[in-house]
Design a protein around this nucleic acid. Structure first.
Ligand SMILES: [Mn+2]
Ligand SMILES: [Mn+2]
Ligand SMILES: [Zn+2]
Ligand SMILES: [Zn+2]
Lengths: 129, 129
DNA sequence: ATTCTTTTTGATAATGATTACTATTACTAG
DNA sequence: CTAGTAATAGTAATCATTATCAAAAAGAAT
């Protein structure tokens, strides 16, 4: 992992925002400091950083991929209208959801999805799919 | 919503399997009964049925979209290795997860994702993004 | 500092899933 | 049956992401 100006700019720009930007949005931010940076460089580095655990990759439900420089454990609220992502702290999550159920009209929260990840029975047994 | 043979075939094929197929997989199944059916027809009808609430659309984490004819409330296990989806009943879910944490080696479950859906503060206030 | 080796970049092409388009065909009400 | 509407087959377009690759930059070794 060599140090490059591009890498630094991408990392810093991602750290400077709270909007959980897409690659395109990071690209737009980076271009202001580095007009010749390539969109491919942005995609490539965001993926590398995410793989290395330096940033979070937010892969959700058919929408564009977003990235998060905040590595602390927390949850996200995705807006059905604008597609944006905002944070929900882990500490607040259970309290919030219980209260939200009772406070109608105060919040737009409409539901949540729970997805388990792992290795299925077939793969555990080495069967071909 | 007219009745068409294609619609019936797609619906029946989806009901006949437990694998939560992708559009491609439904297409492959449907072709056996109707060799000239178009992939576009499969995509179109699966989307329409999902929108109408006749089937479930399983949009998960950057993977291909899958569909489920089982409308009962239940959860899914997605395999990291093959990408397949299998069911977890709602009744079993909390018991299972607690027990799985203690039974190492017996299950491949490695984590889960929780995503909230709703309208964010900005959109609730009618602000442009 | 100079050369060599490896990594990274920028530009662009390719990919792959989904969606859009359109002329033709199938439904369905009357 | 016929007119009017909806759906289909075939294919093109879209769009986010990946892949490719020659040129440039970074790091290591002299
Ligand atoms: Mn976050
Ligand atoms: Mn299911
Ligand atoms: Zn919003
Ligand atoms: Zn599997």
């Amino acid at each position: 992992m060599n140090k490059t100006v591009q890498r630094t700019v991408i990392f810093e720009e991602l750290h400077g925002v709270k909007i959980h930007p897409t690659a395109d949005e990071v690209y737009a931010m980076a271009r202001k400091r580095m007009p010749n940076i390539s969109i491919a460089t942005v995609y490539r580095n965001l993926e590398t950083m995410a793989t290395n655990g330096d940033i979070l990759r937010l892969d959700i439900a058919g929408k564009r991929r977003r990235y998060d420089a905040d590595l602390s454990k927390h949850y996200h609220l995705r807006c059905r209208s604008c597609g944006g992502v905002s944070d929900i702290s882990q500490a607040a999550i259970s309290q919030v959801t219980q209260k939200l159920e009772k406070l109608k009209g105060v919040s737009g929260i409409e539901g949540y999805s729970l997805e388990f990840r792992g290795i299925c029975e077939h793969c555990q047994n080495g069967e071909v799919k």
